[in-house]
Simulated scan of single mutants.
Amino acid sequence: MATIRKRELPSGKIVWQADYRDGGGKRRHKQFSKKGDADAFLLTARGQVRAGTHVADSASITVDKAAKLWLAQAEKNGRERATVARYKSTYELYVKPRFGATKLAALSAPAIQTFIDDLTGTMSASSLAKVHGALTSIFKHAVSRGHAAVNPARDIQMPSATRDKRRPEMPTKDELRAILKHTAARWIPFIRIAILTGMRASELRGLQWRDVAIESGVIHVRRRVDRYNEFGPPKSDAGTRDIPISDSTVAMLKAWRKECPKGEHDLVFPNGEGNIEGHANLLHRVFWPAQIAAGVTVSTGVKDEDGKPILDAKYSLHALRHAAAALFIEQGFPPKKVQSLMGHASLAMTYDVYGYLFKTEDDDRAKIAEMETALLG
């Protein structure tokens, strides 16, 4: 039987104690300074006991223990090493210092909301979403294993990401031509394929010759390589896709295959020994030098000993993916096709990033005018 009784502690403090039995029949109690809080707790606890989801405070584990169980399960489930490392980093940097020692049963939605509010404005919206996602996933795992009754992180209000959105930086056509012109001959096929297919750097690094259908002129994206040089599937189901290439690109790849270093993985863009090329090497030895040689640069704000400004490469490799999307759209591919070519998980993602590049209302008005003229003269 569940009851609430008034108690005077040895210190003289008056508390209201809620007594009840958990799902296993064990006697439990919890103290409150206000009777209304005790009533509210008991009402919730009794409902959780009936539903078989209640976890008493004394039986609850800490957030840190729950996080370790969550990370271990993610690894056991085959999540990529880089993904698990990102989860762990987010937890260690942001969640653990605030809540690591807190028991799951003691962590409330208002406490998490305050945490998110405190972080808002100190990081990008995407980084904040990762922090919230870590907390949500920790509790989701804990609830499914009986370590928590509810997920207080689930209904947290996140700030609007609208103001954080920026149009992606990408090279202009002139800059792309200049970069290609100043790229070392050995790496022109890599840069050219990146520009014309929109493939992610990880997908290009993991591309094997068996993925290139020379006769039909199609590249089959079936795998990627992570930061640890380990093979894995594309980022999502949509990442598994087929990208058409032109006859001239096919000819270029045929010529490159004869010169391509051979290795156990039969990679299209390996390093000099035929092994997986590191992402950092592609930046430091290939893409950034090509930009600097082409004059596609930005000032670092620092000057050398002669007083001349030190310049840096303007774009990351990912900018070539953005440039490819812009080229697809300019060519007239409909949004759904652009989504497919880019391997986006949803059409909404395509619109979120590249919506401003699709035809404007002025274009629509011109089409309506043409339709009207054709009909009415």
Rank of each mutant, 00 (worst) to 15 (best):
R7M: 14
E8M: 11
G12K: 05
I14K: 11
Q17G: 01
R28G: 06
K30V: 12
K35V: 11
D39Y: 13
V49L: 06
H54G: 05
H54S: 04
A56V: 11
A59L: 11
V63H: 00
L69G: 15
L69E: 13
A72P: 04
A72R: 12
R79I: 01
V84Y: 04
R86T: 12
R86S: 10
Y91S: 05
K103G: 06
T114W: 03
D117R: 07
M123H: 14
A129Q: 11
H132S: 01
G133F: 02
H141A: 07
V143N: 07
V150L: 04
M158F: 09
P168Q: 10
D174I: 08
E175P: 10
A185I: 00
A185P: 02
I188Q: 11
I191M: 07
I191W: 00
W209M: 09
R210I: 07
I219P: 08
R222A: 15
N229V: 04
G232S: 13
G232W: 12
S236D: 14
D237Q: 15
P244E: 12
T249W: 08
V250K: 15
W256G: 00
K258D: 11
C260G: 04
E264D: 13
L267F: 05
P270I: 04
G274C: 06
N275C: 10
E277V: 10
E277Y: 06
V286A: 01
P289R: 01
Q291M: 08
A294M: 10
V296F: 01
S299L: 00
G301Y: 01
P309V: 03
L311H: 03
K314H: 04
Y315K: 06
Y315W: 07
H322W: 06
G332I: 07
F333D: 08
K337Q: 14
Q339M: 15
H344D: 15
A345L: 09
S346G: 14
M349C: 03
K359T: 02
K359I: 00
T360F: 00
K367E: 03
K367L: 05
M371P: 00
A374E: 15
